[in-house]
Computed example of a mutant assay.
Amino acid sequence: MLWNLRMRAAERGIWKSTEMRRLLADAGLEISAGKMSALWTGTPTTIRLDDLEVICSVLDCDPATLLICEPEKAAARRPQKEQQKAVGQSSAQVVAPRFGRHRSAPPL
């Protein structure tokens, strides 16, 4: 995923992280200077959905504007054997459902 916060903020005329932090605080989201710096300069490894909702509200956008998929990166992480298998197959593998009770009984 590509984190697009700075570009979206620039489109809204927000050029400094301190300005963005102030707007978020006005919207009810208090972010520390360190966390704001991390959001502003890099791609966060995690973000709370509540925080994302406020950020989107301030920037007048939806999460898809801030989080851009990069399918080539996901494909690059796939193990080599699986990549070769996927390239060699033209149709997807069909998984048949298992009916009946195929589980062990719970402990007594």
Results as ranks from 00 to 15, higher is better:
residue 23 L to K: 15
residue 66 L to G: 01
residue 45 T to V: 09
residue 4 N to T: 07
residue 32 S to P: 04
residue 17 S to A: 06
residue 33 A to D: 14
residue 60 D to E: 15
residue 36 M to R: 04
residue 26 D to L: 13
residue 32 S to E: 08
residue 15 W to N: 08
residue 91 S to H: 06
residue 48 R to M: 06
residue 76 A to M: 05
residue 81 K to P: 01
residue 100 G to H: 12
residue 30 E to L: 10
residue 79 P to S: 01
residue 1 M to F: 12
residue 21 R to T: 01
residue 24 L to T: 00
residue 93 Q to C: 01
residue 31 I to Y: 07
residue 73 K to Y: 05
residue 59 L to H: 07
residue 95 V to C: 02
residue 48 R to K: 13
residue 22 R to K: 14
residue 3 W to R: 02
residue 63 P to F: 14
residue 77 R to P: 00
residue 103 R to Q: 14
residue 22 R to Y: 11
residue 70 E to Y: 03
residue 6 R to A: 13
residue 72 E to F: 02
residue 46 T to G: 01
residue 88 G to Q: 10
residue 41 T to K: 09
residue 56 C to R: 02
residue 65 T to C: 07
residue 13 G to K: 06
residue 96 A to V: 09
residue 89 Q to F: 04
residue 81 K to Y: 04
residue 12 R to C: 10
residue 10 A to Y: 12
residue 76 A to I: 02
residue 54 V to G: 01
residue 73 K to E: 08
residue 77 R to E: 09
residue 95 V to T: 09
residue 101 R to V: 14
residue 1 M to E: 07
residue 1 M to S: 10
residue 9 A to T: 08
residue 102 H to D: 06
residue 79 P to F: 04
residue 79 P to C: 02
residue 39 L to S: 01
residue 38 A to N: 10
residue 69 C to F: 07
residue 108 L to W: 15
residue 73 K to L: 08
residue 93 Q to E: 10
residue 69 C to S: 07
residue 5 L to N: 01
residue 44 P to T: 03
residue 105 A to M: 15
residue 80 Q to D: 02
residue 79 P to W: 07
residue 22 R to F: 11
residue 9 A to G: 02
residue 15 W to K: 09
residue 69 C to T: 06
residue 87 V to P: 00
residue 69 C to Q: 08
residue 33 A to H: 14
residue 95 V to Y: 09
residue 54 V to L: 08
residue 86 A to N: 06
residue 11 E to C: 07
residue 51 D to M: 09
residue 91 S to P: 00
residue 38 A to I: 03
residue 11 E to L: 13
residue 62 D to S: 06
residue 10 A to M: 12
residue 70 E to H: 03
residue 3 W to H: 00
residue 65 T to D: 13
residue 25 A to T: 08
residue 45 T to F: 06
residue 82 E to W: 09
residue 16 K to C: 04
residue 4 N to C: 03
residue 88 G to L: 11
residue 97 P to S: 09
residue 11 E to G: 13
residue 30 E to M: 09
residue 65 T to N: 08
residue 85 K to R: 10
residue 25 A to W: 01
residue 63 P to V: 12
residue 99 F to H: 12
residue 83 Q to K: 15
residue 25 A to H: 13
residue 96 A to T: 11
residue 91 S to G: 00
residue 78 R to M: 11
residue 64 A to Q: 13
residue 34 G to H: 12
residue 79 P to Y: 04
residue 103 R to W: 14
residue 30 E to R: 12
residue 90 S to W: 05
residue 92 A to V: 10
residue 18 T to E: 11
residue 26 D to A: 11
residue 58 V to A: 06
residue 103 R to A: 14
residue 35 K to Y: 13
residue 22 R to N: 09
residue 84 Q to E: 13
residue 105 A to R: 15
residue 102 H to N: 15
residue 65 T to S: 09
residue 40 W to T: 00
residue 82 E to D: 07
residue 29 L to R: 00
residue 39 L to Q: 02
residue 63 P to G: 04
residue 85 K to A: 06
residue 67 L to N: 01
residue 50 D to Q: 13
residue 24 L to A: 02
residue 58 V to K: 11
residue 34 G to E: 14
residue 101 R to H: 15
residue 12 R to K: 15
